[in-house]
């Protein structure tokens, strides 16, 4: 039944606005935490993506529309605060495409949040590699793509596992299978 697919009622517009603002702040904070981690990754694009903890939560607590908006905004805000124009140029397509992949996989209802998040992480890094390929002529895709896919897969799986534990606790009303 279609009604059952809808996210559970969670207050009116004001409540929703307040909560989404809170989630937004949390995502930016996660971006800050990630920016101060001193470990230097051997390849650009390799990171845990802590803000995605929040983004994937929004996808499950609300819908993909809210998640896309918050995700795009946090890439821009985090980019201006802790990154640069390049992190926005590479981060935005990655964020949007990974969210669309996650939204579609979630809708099929075949996979749980761990699978959805793992695919989202992989899609994110594939999208970033594609952007690099278009911006930098001769970008060595054959070497970067597999390594970044594995990195995205690991990061996405970890984020998904964490979210599978977090979401039922922050909202007991959410019915996750």
């Amino acid at each position: 039944m279609n009604v059952m697919k809808r996210p559970p009622y969670r207050g009116g517009t004001t409540t929703k606005t307040a909560y989404l603002g809170l989630f937004m702040a949390l995502a930016i904070l996660m971006g800050y935490v990630e920016a101060i981690i001193p470990i230097q990754m051997p390849m650009p694009g390799m990171k845990l993506g802590l803000p995605n903890l929040v983004i994937a939560s929004i996808l499950y607590l609300y819908s993909w529309k809210e998640a896309v908006i918050i995700s795009s905004l946090r890439v821009i805000v985090i980019g201006f605060l802790f990154g640069n124009m390049f992190s926005i140029a590479y981060g935005l397509p990655g964020a949007v495409i990974s969210l669309l992949v996650m939204a579609i996989l979630k809708r099929t209802d075949i996979f749980g949040i761990v699978g959805v998040s793992a695919a989202g992480g992989t899609a994110h890094n594939m999208a970033q590699t594609a952007v690099a390929f278009f911006i930098v002529k001769g970008f060595p895709v054959v070497w970067y793509l597999p390594v970044l896919m594995i990195a995205g897969l690991i990061a996405g799986t970890l984020i998904g596992l964490a979210d599978a534990l977090i979401i039922p606790r922050i909202n007991p009303l959410t019915h996750l299978k």
Partner: peptide
């Protein structure tokens, strides 16, 4: 709620096999 579905493990395995094959080819 179950933490991990069987389909999740399958999806992760498929997503892992593709880049590993590409890496092996590169090596």
């Amino acid at each position: 709620m179950r933490l991990l579905r069987k389909t999740d493990i399958l999806l992760i395995a498929i997503l892992a096999v593709i880049p590993v094959c590409m890496l092996a080819f590169n090596m």
